[in-house]
Design a protein around this nucleic acid. Structure first.
Length: 271
DNA sequence: AATCGCGCCTGACGGC
DNA sequence: TGCCGTCAGGCGCGAT
């Protein structure tokens, strides 16, 4: 599910419930996620105070004096804040039970998510240390994309979904940003002009910002920390709209497979 | 170095 | 009704 806007929506939602709270215990019902949940996690977190909830790429970082928990929501994960006594549903894999008897609960049907221990400097963790810039980083702009893409032959859609290039853009927002920028998703990354990359960088920022403002996109699994969906689905211009009409030119939206993923575009508006 | 395809999982849906 | 194939928002990994 979750791309950057959904992860950031989750971060903002859970943060006020967690800051300065003490973790009473951790309940692990299913440890087989993308990687096994470390057996030492329970003892490391017991009685720790949560000091910060931040985000790097699509990872949520829950910081305590003893170290940091890395949370990833994979394709179908969500985090809820609920009373600790709430009975667990199917796929409710982990509870972080707080001393105030509230609970941070991870629900993830497909189990592509992760709960890992990152120590005191999560930026040194192997899953984090080689990532590209955040979209809001000063270095991320059209010139950055243009320079990095020279000589690259892969499709622009795969290029902007590559976490070593820029983090946070998944399958939905890649299609959407390319539509707004007027770029065909299959165009070679190395054959796009500087001016078009400037427009693309601007559109990536604005689409992510608007999606965060709307509380993310809920297609199937995503819910916010209070269980409510995000409202960006109604703003989608091409994603999931195969055979429907383009909002700009009224021609039919097309779907093609790029890198084994569905990609949506308007063949008249995007080149 | 860059690129491609696989596979981890469950669940929903359409066709027969 | 049941079975089977396909598809779904991520992403690291091994092969080329």
């Amino acid at each position: 599910m979750p791309e950057l806007p959904e992860v950031e929506t989750t971060r903002k939602g859970i943060e006020p419930h967690l800051l300065q709270q003490r973790i009473k215990k951790v309940i692990i019902r299913q440890s087989k996620l993308r990687w096994p949940i470390p057996a030492t996690l329970k003892q490391k977190l017991k009685d720790q105070i949560i000091t910060r909830i931040s985000r790097r790429a699509k990872y949520l970082l829950m910081q305590t004096p003893a170290g940091t928990v890395l949370l990833h929501l994979g394709m179908s994960g969500s985090l809820r804040i609920i009373p600790a006594k709430t009975p667990a549903d199917k796929h409710d894999h982990v509870d972080f039970v707080l001393a105030n008897n509230q609970c941070l609960r991870l629900h993830d049907p497909r189990r592509f998510g992760a709960v890992l221990w990152a120590g005191k400097d999560p930026n040194k963790h192997p899953l984090i240390c080689n990532l590209g810039p955040e979209p809001w980083d000063n270095m991320f702009n059209g010139d950055y994309l243009f320079n990095l893409s020279r000589g690259r032959k892969k499709a622009i859609k795969n290029f902007i979904m590559d976490g070593h290039v820029v983090v946070g853009i998944g399958n939905i927002y890649a299609s959407e940003a390319l539509f707004h920028a007027g770029i065909h998703p299959q165009r070679e990354a190395g054959r796009i002009s500087r001016i078009r990359y400037q427009r693309l960088a601007e559109n990536i920022l604005s689409i992510l910002e608007k999606a965060i403002q709307a509380g993310g996109t809920s297609l199937k699994d995503f819910v916010r920390e209070d269980g409510t969906p995000g409202y960006f689905k109604q703003e989608l211009r091409v994603y999931g709209r195969e055979h429907e009409t383009c909002y700009i030119c009224s021609s039919r939206i097309k779907r093609i497979i790029i890198g084994q993923r569905s990609s949506f575009y308007c063949s008249k508006c995007q080149h």
